[in-house]
């Protein structure tokens, strides 16, 4: 019996990067997986490779959430794990330069989108046959603790979702739900997005070295290395963990590097 057999999982932003890695891993461990996003052709590839189910869906759209929740409840009858992973830095900038539209876009996806994911996952899980139970995980970032000067909205939103999971974890406790809510804070992960940033930076070698140098390990994380932690949170291994923030960043934020 595989570790996640019998479980139903939801991954937002699952068509690429960490989200796609999570879909692969959750499927490999036996979970049924519904994932969301907007890139249909990328989604088709993930579906073909994993047998997961895709729903075109925008995390910041409240009405779309009602429809998605109904669909999960109707088709699967339960939800055991939700990974609020969808995120963006589109429109971001420094506090001095960012436009209001840019700010609202990043906060809308990263912060409001994460809140809606936690909200709808908790409502679904609270109605699970056998009692209110499940695991909700939010993908924050090490930037929750180390803010970037040139990405104010991203940094703020990633810090905000740490407070979100703590509030939601305490709420679940107040309601006596066996629903746990946690955040992971990855360092730089070598996704297609980062690779593209490197390739188009003008000086790929220097840009790559800068990303790699953020971790004392001298490298970026591989998507699979984050997916392993995601699967652990989806499994019953993490039953006593709630309201926590797990840093997975190759010691990037453990302290200062030596001189």
């Amino acid at each position: 019996m595989k570790r996640l057999e019998g479980k139903v999982a939801l991954v937002t932003g699952g068509t690429s990067g960490i989200g796609a890695g999570a879909v692969h891993r959750l499927r490999a461990e036996g979970a049924k997986v519904v994932f969301t996003g907007s890139n249909r052709s990328a989604a088709d590839e993930v579906c073909a490779a994993t047998g997961a189910e895709f729903v075109s869906h925008n995390v910041r759209d409240g009405a779309a959430w009602d429809a998605l929740s109904e669909r999960i409840e109707r088709d699967h009858g339960r939800l055991d794990f939700a990974f609020a992973n969808a995120g963006t830095e589109h429109g971001d900038g420094s506090v001095e330069d960012i436009t209001l539209d840019g700010w609202e876009n990043v906060i809308g996806v990263n912060q409001t989108g994460a809140m809606l994911t936690v909200q709808h996952a908790m409502r679904l899980m609270s109605r699970n046959p056998g009692g209110a139970a499940g695991s909700i995980l939010v993908n924050s970032s090490m930037n929750a603790h180390r803010a970037m000067g040139n990405f104010v909205a991203y940094s703020v939103s990633k810090a905000a979702v740490v407070a979100l999971v703590k509030s939601a974890a305490v709420h679940a406790g107040n309601r006596k739900y066996r629903i746990r809510v946690n955040a992971i804070l990855p360092g730089v992960v070598e996704t297609a997005l980062i690779r593209n940033l490197i390739d188009t930076s003008g000086d790929p070698t220097a840009t790559r070295a800068a990303y790699e140098g953020l971790s004392p390990l001298g490298r970026m994380a591989r998507v699979e290395e984050i997916a392993g932690l995601v699967a652990w949170f989806a499994s019953d291994e993490s039953q006593f963990v709630s309201g926590s923030e797990y840093v997975i960043d190759g010691a990037s934020t453990a302290g200062m590097m030596g001189v």
């Binding site: 974890a169 305490v170 406790g173 746990r180 360092g187 004392p216 390990l217 994380a221 591989r222 290395e225 984050i226 392993g228 932690l229 006593f240 963990v241 709630s242 309201g243 926590s244 923030e245 797990y246 840093v247 997975i248 960043d249 190759g250 010691a251 934020t253 453990a254 302290g255």
Partner: peptide, 14 residues
């Protein structure tokens, strides 16, 4: 956990 070092894993039921 190959990318995890210098981290703290809290297991405290919230």
């Amino acid at each position: 956990s190959s990318y995890m070092t210098g981290a703290e894993l809290v297991i405290d039921g919230g």
